[in-house]
Design a binder for these strands. Structure first.
Lengths: 224, 224, 224, 224
DNA sequence: AATGAATGAGCCTTCATTCAT
DNA sequence: CATGAATGAAGGCTCATTCAT
């Protein structure tokens, strides 16, 4: 009867505001006061929805990865060749590199600052499961690629998945620290091709699997 | 009169103590007080050697990477085949994964918290140069490998180096966050092989073709 | 519901306590802790009402001079002869010499220490305006005295006002430094008479011509 | 035999350096370190010549007033009319207003900051004697003026002296605080004339005693 | 006398969290 | 549920002074 929608998403409003503020100032430098005023609520109200600052951050992070992973899940389910899937997935990450970098920095700061002290279990489990899901998803794509003959049979899907995840994370970290010289689109493209070439059965042949990648290279050879 | 040993290396002692404490508690959670008492000096004495907490951390980090890079430099200069070099280098990182993880977490936390404010230039430059040196070193090894026929000629050494550095960093990050399930030696070995396989001229042979590190140079190709 | 008195004037209480403590120990030697406990609030609460120590002091000073000047303003508006006004005004300052001395010392210390750094503008303007108002008020009295024939016509009201203000300030400073031998009431009386004699139309008559304050207006000239 | 002069004035060098630094930064903001390096000696050496910071400042101040008073003493002894003496004396102060202002601020800060706590006796006595000497000197001039018929007979030399000293101090204080609108030479001249006119026997006559003062004013009447 | 490394007490300020209304 | 005033613990940094050389 009375406004349901106006009230219903207090929590969402807070999370949304928190997301912005955290990304803008980092975990430590963000105060509950700032989040509250940014969300248009009183400081005390935050504690009606979240146990404390850590809890707020953790829940925010959970929502973020839930959103991201939903997108990925969709991609994985699509009915397209494995190499294309992988490319799209990587492209997706690279396209949002800035966003991932911001989130990554946030998480790492949070982890090192706050989580070292308490609640390690809760968050550690979250991270572990997140990485595990990523590896599983990518592993599935790799397996699909092997089964369809696109990727080399001797590849261990698990190892390949770990490697791909590691590369992506590594790039995010470097983007984070390497403030001056961010990765150029060109070098990211090179990295992607290198990764795919390593998986591809036709690594030393003109790689037809790489349908979108820049065709500058008339030889068509993977760069790595 | 000839008191040389009497003058203990205060600065070194402080750095050493700081290293331990920072690694144990993180940057933010570490207090100057703790460092001082851990080093067996008065709080004020810290400021005789370092401008402030940030400076102390920065100098500590500089010494750490200086030490690490000296080791690497030696390895790079050794007279062994490129693939072996790369393997040794990766083995080296993996062997010290725990240490690198601790340092990495420290650096990332520091970066995310303190560096947001000032001294970005100083530290950012340090990071940039560090990464740059790593890429150059690895690139040199890759080039050597290509020249000696060990690695595929179509590989772009720069891209390969970026990729390898990214993988290593990614692994460190995952070690950092993935607190529960650290990388097993077996999976690290798999990663290493995968990486080398991508470079290797014999990539299309079953992986047993990858000589284990230490299987020294039966071909003599290592000689430039 | 109608809780009006329940809400104690926290800000006022803090200012009041701060006034006492500052006067007792000086600006530098006063700690926020002391003010807080003296006001019966927690240290952190001070910062709910004042940005920092300087701000607290500045606002305290602003309230003090506001109060003092209100009194003066009343006096200036009274319907009595100019010389009597001036006498009352000076009597007023002399009567509160101890208080003015304490405040003066405080202000000078604050000015010399804290204000050298920042907020100079804010405080400098406050001082400038305060002096300006004093000169204007006294100038108005002098003008009134000239118009009513009590003071010599050739006097420049502005110069006279500056001189009077300077004398008063000088006396405060000497009271401040000359800790041992405070001004005796007799010597203050002498100073006052000297000052008024300089202004008076009967300056060349023996000083008995100076009516003591309170000898109200036997000539009726006070009426404008 | 060996350098006597090189060593002899270590103390003087320190005092000289301290004077500069104190004037530049204020008492509190000046560190012993700064004084030492400015004097070209080691920090510890300061304590070979002065008990502590307060002592250093006190001795510096003592030397400054000794120098100033020596100058004044000379002036007082000169064989010129009393009104001229007084004018010269006041001119002298006004000419060095900036310097006196700096020193005054220093002293007031020191007094309020450091002296409140200890050594009050020592310094208070110094101040008292200084003011006393000033009053005595000026009183002597006034007496001389009365005796020579230049000043009005009914003036109490002591009161007049107090008043003059107060005016001068007041002007210094206002210069100190009134940062924006420093006293203009013209208004200082007006103040001086006002003071002298108050003393002068020919206050309502063209004042021949005012030989140097601006002759703009054809009426020659003192402004106060 | 000269040095300067070592000392450690002292203080302002921030901010997550609570709780009375 | 909402509010926001109150809380108080906690920490980096300065600097006068000492003292071994």
């Amino acid at each position: 009867m009375c406004s349901v929608k106006g009230t219903i998403d207090r929590r969402g409003a807070i999370l949304s505001a928190a997301g912005k503020v955290f990304r803008a100032h980092g975990y430590t430098a963000t105060t509950m006061e700032t989040i509250a005023s940014s969300a248009g609520v009183a400081k005390g109200s935050l504690y009606n929805y979240f146990r404390n600052k850590q809890d707020l951050f953790t829940q925010l992070f959970a929502e973020i990865i839930a959103g991201d992973e939903a997108e990925t899940e969709q991609l994985v389910a699509e009915d397209i060749p494995a190499d294309e899937k992988l490319q799209k997935l990587i492209d997706n990450v690279f396209a949002q590199l800035e966003r991932y970098t911001a989130i990554g920095g946030l998480v790492l700061e949070f982890w090192a600052t706050a989580a070292r002290q308490k609640h390690q279990g809760e968050l550690a489990e979250m991270f572990e499961q997140m990485f595990s899901r990523w590896r599983r998803r990518i592993g599935a794509i790799v397996t699909q690629g092997i089964e369809s003959g696109l990727f080399r049979a001797e590849i261990d899907p698990e190892v390949a998945a770990s490697l791909i995840v590691a590369v992506v994370d590594g790039i995010i970290v470097q983007s984070l620290l390497d403030v001056g010289a961010k990765f150029s689109p060109r070098s990211l493209e090179g990295l992607k091709k290198g990764l795919l070439a390593g998986l591809s059965a036709w690594a030393d042949l003109p790689s037809p699997g790489l349908r979108q990648a820049g065709t500058k290279d008339q030889s068509g050879r993977g760069e790595l």
